[in-house]
């Protein structure tokens, strides 16, 4: 893996510039998909993606610069929940514009990158074959039935009538 050998890079302004440009590219593609698939107005979607990009940028920046070993997922989640929490002054603004971005629009773009990125591992996926199908079926069945069993028990115990 030759590109790992040079180990002296530091994250510079230039590096953060790369993050920003990538997020901008992702936002534009998502907004276009969001418009074609769900007809959400482009301006609202752009503001929504701008908010999400800012949260992401802040999260990955904090993961790398703050002296705690905390994943960016946690930083981003906490900031997002706080900003959208009813009663916060930001809540209405953030919730309105972010709701203009369908989760499925984001996932559609995201999975295009995932598809290209996972191309390198295709042969390993093929090796997983039938066994993977058996495990997947078991995972879905036990998750579904597990949820149903617990929900049923709690509903009966709390006396929710049918």
């Amino acid at each position: 893996m030759p590109d790992l050998i040079d180990g002296s890079e530091n994250i510079t302004v230039h590096g953060i510039f790369n993050w920003i440009l990538l997020l901008a590219i992702f936002s534009i593609i998502t907004v276009i998909g969001n418009y074609i698939g769900y007809k959400h107005p482009i301006t609202d979607s752009l503001i929504g993606m701008f908010i999400l990009s800012l949260l992401t940028l802040a999260g990955v920046w904090m993961e790398r610069y703050l002296p705690f070993n905390i994943s960016s997922i946690i930083y981003i989640s906490v900031m997002g929940i706080i900003l959208a929490f009813p009663g916060m002054p930001t809540s209405e603004f953030v919730s309105y514009y972010v709701s203009k971005i369908e989760l499925l629009s984001i996932v559609t773009v995201f999975l295009a990158y995932v598809g290209i990125g996972m191309g390198k591992s295709w042969n390993e996926f093929k090796a997983l074959g039938l066994r993977a199908i058996i495990v997947t079926v078991l995972v879905i069945a036990s998750t579904y039935l597990g949820a149903a069993v617990v929900a049923h028990i709690v509903l009966v115990m709390t006396g929710v009538p049918v």
Binding site: F26, S53, L55, T56, G59, G80, I81, I82, I106, V107
Partner: peptide, 22 residues
């Protein structure tokens, strides 16, 4: 694409976080 995807996970998480908060 793989490197970029790691960054874009953030967008997905941010969207879910806003939904949870609401």
């Amino acid at each position: 694409a793989e490197g970029a995807m790691m960054l874009f996970i953030g967008i997905l998480i941010a969207k879910l976080a806003v939904s949870s908060g609401q």
